Amino acid sequence: MTLTYFLLFLAASAAAAATGIIFKPGEWYVGLKKPGFTPPNWVFPVAWTYLYVSVAYAAARVAGVEGSQIALALFAVQIALNTLWTPVFFGAHRLGMGMTVLVCLWAAVVAMMLAFFRFDLIAGLLVIPYLAWLSLASALNFRVWRDNRS
């Protein structure tokens, strides 16, 4: 792993995170009915910061390893889908479409994790918290979508 790879993957993650600055939850989101298992607001930036850094580190561990092109392409797919979710959900207020993006993102992260495991045990393990968080996010998105269909 090199620092250059890590910084490049971290930059891609920062671009994804920047959508949260542009498309904030706002009053629209505050007014939605949310399930009781919704984490407090402060948890989201803390969790995402950890996840973006750890997944960037995981990708950097895999980068440069012979034959890792598909694994790195899957990183690109998942970060693109990750970037898309915020403007779809918070920007366009398309809860169902947000759910669709999350299902695709979840599948891409599973594929990326499995590919990372082929090259580096630690890289694969670093993706597990991301998958767990996306599972929670998917449950939240689904319940918000289901409970606010008006």
Rank of each mutant, 00 (worst) to 15 (best):
M1T: 09
M1V: 08
T2C: 03
T4Q: 13
Y5M: 00
L7P: 03
L7W: 08
F9Y: 15
F9S: 01
A14R: 01
A15Y: 08
A17G: 15
A18Y: 11
T19P: 07
G20A: 06
G20F: 05
I21Y: 13
F23V: 11
F23G: 09
G26D: 13
G26T: 11
W28A: 12
W28F: 13
W28R: 10
V30G: 01
G31C: 02
L32S: 11
K33L: 11
F44I: 10
F44V: 08
F44A: 12
P45G: 05
P45S: 08
V46Y: 03
V46I: 15
A47E: 10
W48M: 09
L51P: 04
Y52V: 10
Y52D: 06
S54R: 09
S54A: 15
V55W: 00
A56H: 09
A56Y: 10
Y57T: 09
Y57V: 10
A59S: 15
A59D: 07
V62A: 02
V62Q: 03
A63F: 09
G64H: 03
G64V: 06
V65A: 08
E66F: 02
E66T: 13
I70K: 14
I70G: 03
A71V: 09
L72S: 06
A73S: 12
L74Q: 08
L74Y: 03
A76Q: 06
Q78A: 06
L81C: 09
N82S: 10
N82A: 10
L84G: 02
W85I: 05
W85P: 02
W85S: 05
T86C: 14
T86L: 12
V88H: 12
F89K: 04
F89T: 08
F89D: 02
F90H: 05
G91M: 12
H93Q: 11
R94L: 15
R94S: 14
R94V: 04
L95N: 02
L95S: 04
M97Q: 12
M97E: 13
G98Q: 05
T100H: 02
V101D: 06
V101S: 01
V101Y: 00
V101T: 07
L102K: 11
L105T: 08
L105D: 08
A107F: 13
A108N: 13
A108Y: 11
A108M: 13
V109R: 01
V109I: 15
V110F: 03
V110L: 14
A111R: 04
A111W: 09
M112F: 05
A115L: 09
A115G: 14
A115Q: 14
F116M: 11
F117I: 04
R118P: 01
R118N: 14
L121G: 02
I122V: 15
A123K: 12
A123E: 08
G124Q: 05
G124W: 03
L125E: 08
V127T: 14
I128E: 07
P129Y: 05
L131W: 14
W133P: 10
W133T: 09
A137M: 04
N141E: 03
F142G: 01
F142V: 01
F142K: 02
W145K: 04
R146I: 05
R146L: 11
D147W: 05
N148E: 04
R149T: 04
R149K: 11
